[in-house]
Design a protein around this nucleic acid. Sequence first.
DNA 1: AAAATAAGACACTAATTAGTGAATTAAATA
DNA 2: TATTTAATTCACTAATTAGTGTCTTATTTT
Lengths: 209, 209
Amino acid sequence: MERKPVAGAIRNKERSKKKFLSAVGKILKTKGYQGLRVNDIATTAGLDKKMIYSYFGGTDQLIDEYIRSQDFWSNIKEDKIPAGIKDGGKAFSENMLLSQFDYVFKNKELQKILLWRLSEKRKSLKKLTDVQEKNGEALFRNIMDPHFGDNDKQFRAVMAILVSGIYYLNLYAAVNGSVFCGLDMKSEEGRDEVKKALSFLVERTYGGL
Amino acid sequence: MERKPVAGAIRNKERSKKKFLSAVGKILKTKGYQGLRVNDIATTAGLDKKMIYSYFGGTDQLIDEYIRSQDFWSNIKEDKIPAGIKDGGKAFSENMLLSQFDYVFKNKELQKILLWRLSEKRKSLKKLTDVQEKNGEALFRNIMDPHFGDNDKQFRAVMAILVSGIYYLNLYAAVNGSVFCGLDMKSEEGRDEVKKALSFLVERTYGGL
DNA sequence: AAAATAAGACACTAATTAGTGAATTAAATA
DNA sequence: TATTTAATTCACTAATTAGTGTCTTATTTT
């Protein structure tokens, strides 16, 4: 087999495109979407911004391609559903919420995306939202809706509140103080209380809706 | 009594300061904190930006003074607590959550502030957060903590989730699509489901914690 | 009424931004 | 190997930004 040269050829469009895309990711993770300026992206990529225009058409298109290329909700997908659910998705819902709470906490990039989605109208973010909704819809329709029957909407509303709460608390923890309702959202204890509360609320919802 | 001239004197420092402060509010409401640029504030106020520097010291100080001057959580304060609560604050909690859900939905400025607080580290916003926490602390300590005893932290966690959910759902509704878990957060029906869910969750929390 | 004070206007600088035309040269093609 | 193509760089423009020095003049003070 031929030995690949360490850095490859000097000029390589595809490699450069990838560098730009990963520069977007890097900036997004550290500075958030507001840091996504042409000059900065180019500097981070170690390339000339001219190429952003010739390869992608502009910063917006580059950014959109980045968003499209990522799978931010890889953890909640139809194919992650255990087969043969008998409890109406109770265990699944609880596990999903608990793991999501930790996942968002640890995943800085997802936090930035969530914040971005609340801050700026943007087609690719709307698309992202639609995909996420579509995935969720499959879960509800196949697993929980049948279990709750006429109360399916009610269950969805409960889940909407819980998921939203998970998002918000984690975004909140990152800036301007992390204590909410007297609980520190950055501490193990505070987060454990929230997890216990999530479990409790799921339990109570399945128990009494 | 002397008749006041319609527009007052031509030159008036206090009046100008007020114009700057209300310009900040106006921009915040419409464009959010990202629109708070010196030039724009000055234009909106109809005055010269030089004065922002001489009167306030700079944009940051002006903005901080604005934040300090507003009472964003006027609706949830100790003095709004009805006297002689017998139910451990159950009715109060439920009412507070439901009214807060509508209040945040309607109050664009509060939405911008909430988003701002998630987006940018800023002393005056931290201060705001601290005040809000202090108010909440008084409520918990006097009303709910005694009722829940050893489970006081658990109740706080539940409330943290519910309040966060309320915040997030309303911020979410404003941009990039308003359907969450299949419920439209801008429609009467979707919002009613959420309200019913909030009531249900409070009910169940008081019933079984 | 004259002088002093300071409110306010204006024009400027310097830095940062997005975007482009032209030149350079590595790589592909003939 | 000679020629063409296009990847990449560089230097520039134009717009927008924050911030300041200076001048004018309304208002206050003496």
